[in-house]
């Protein structure tokens, strides 16, 4: 049985790492509206991470706070799933990641919001309202790109193919997550149908993020994200 700390650190790390990844688009997105949207989604996720990690720190009771957990933990101590740490790739790959992850995150948060741990439920009830926007945004882009030109369709399809190997992990090693699978599959199928895209072929899943076995990408991400607090511990401005 997972503790509140286990749940909070996983939810917090998922949100933190994806928020950081999406921030890399700031100033680089294909158009201004997309730039604003991705930065807004990143902001929501970073805010959720702050709340979940603050709760994890409190549960841990070792005098660390949310910032200490975010900026002074090493890569092996992170418990995020692997999909969130994957590089942005092109815009379609970023959208594929968001589409697969946000659909899962919304279902999970909705369940946690009803669960008996009141502190987790309060954060989840707030976050789920934000994630609904992320789901809608990503799903609309999956349809737009899938149902667009030959080029956009090919890229969307490639993006989904690339991210698909990290799907299995979302339903593995988290209490209750396996039961979300049918609802998640139904949502994904409906959007792919509207986009005229095929469900990617089954492939060998890659697992391990929840145990701290990460891809090489996470270390590079942390290097950039943690640099300032590592160099000037406790710096504020």
């Amino acid at each position: 049985m997972d503790s509140v700390f286990d749940h909070a650190i996983r939810l917090g790390d998922d949100a933190l790492i994806l928020g950081q990844r999406l921030s890399e688009w700031c100033g680089h997105a294909p158009m201004l509206e997309v730039d604003l949207a991705l930065a807004n989604i990143a902001l929501d996720l970073t805010g959720q991470a702050t709340l979940f990690l603050a709760l994890a720190a409190e549960e841990e009771g070792r005098g660390r706070d949310a910032d200490a957990l975010a900026f002074r933990r090493d890569v092996l101590d992170f418990r995020n799933c692997l999909i969130v740490e994957q590089p942005n790739g092109d815009f379609a790959q970023t959208i594929a990641r968001q589409f697969l992850f946000s659909n899962w995150q919304e279902l999970l948060l909705a369940e946690i919001a009803e669960a008996p741990a009141p502190a987790l439920a309060a954060i989840a009830a707030k976050a789920v309202k934000e994630v609904r926007y992320h789901v809608r945004y990503a799903s609309e882009w999956v349809v737009r790109l899938g149902d667009g030109t030959q080029e956009s369709r090919g890229r969307m399809s490639d993006g989904l193919d690339w991210m698909w190997r990290f799907v299995e992990e979302l339903f593995d090693a988290v209490d209750g997550a396996a039961s979300l699978r049918p609802a998640w599959e139904a949502r994904i199928a409906a959007t792919l149908r509207a986009a005229g895209l095929e469900r990617p072929r089954p492939m060998r899943p890659i697992l391990g993020g929840r145990k701290g076995h990460h891809s090489e990408h996470l270390g590079h991400l942390l290097c950039e994200m943690q640099f300032l607090q590592r160099t000037y511990p406790g710096a504020t401005w």
């Binding site: 949207a37 807004n40 934000e130 926007y133 945004y137």
Partner: peptide
């Protein structure tokens, strides 16, 4: 609707 996300998290364009 121009964009679901506007100048702040609470607004759409």
């Amino acid at each position: 609707l121009v964009s679901e996300f506007g100048s702040t998290p609470c607004k759409a364009l």
